[in-house]
Amino acid sequence: MASPDPGERASRADRAERDLPPRFRSFSPASFTLLVVGAAILIVSIGDVAPSPKQMVDGVPGFGRLVGRMMPPNLDPDFLTRIGFRIVETFQIALVGTVFGVVLSLPIAWLSARGVSPIGGFNFLFKALVSLFRTIPDLVWALLFVASVGLGAVAGTLTIMMDTIGFCGRFFAEAMEDAEKEPQEALSAIGANKLSIAIGALWPDTLPSMINSSLFALEKAVRSSVVLGLVGAGGIGQELKVAFDLFQYRNASTIILVIFLIVLAMEYVTDKLRARIQ
């Protein structure tokens, strides 16, 4: 059989192409409008707040001068001792705030988890509560607690606690929603009440995931507790603020280095713990 000529082949290919689904989806007018509005917002925002090339170039020598004034870090033993106490306080804020937060997250997550909550459809109330805790930034919580319980570490601990509930409350609830349903149904068939099912089947099943989330929360809490001192909620951040306020840049560089080391150490420890759990 003679093969078709190139012209006929091309027209066959065109017809076949027309029968196939389009290669790209066409935009609806509404989608196109949204795309244009989004692009416009991005361009205006870049014009308003992004650094210009001139600012970047001018900023480099200034930053270099600042780094120069920070060197060498202050290693005076008295200063290091004072920083050591502040570091311990920072770690205490992170640890106690996280533990309290994790403990409170457990019942809150249970009450908010869809399909598991003992209060049925009213679980949205606790979901909303967890969202509220999560959406308020930690520095705002810190300002609220400094204003209500006063300056110092207690305000920092309460801040970390609220932050942890916002974080763990959500992840614990998701783990509970994804937990194996069959063991829970088996205990329900036996006649176990909701609390027994939660403690007997739900929580053991979700434990690895919850420990994982808790370790992330602790890591996050250490980073957060470092800056809480900037608004007077205790910890090493308070020393950092004083150092910058009084232009003691060598003190500031020591504090930054210590913060870096403590965050690094915490990440190392939590990574190891997570690896062991898995």
Partner: peptide, 22 residues
């Protein structure tokens, strides 16, 4: 339908849930 991460003994004890001292 056992609770995988619990001990065998705990899983059997679960069979008594729903009664007194549950």
């Amino acid at each position: 339908c056992l609770v995988r991460r619990r001990t065998v003994l705990s899983n059997v004890v679960h069979g008594l849930l729903g009664g007194k001292g549950s």
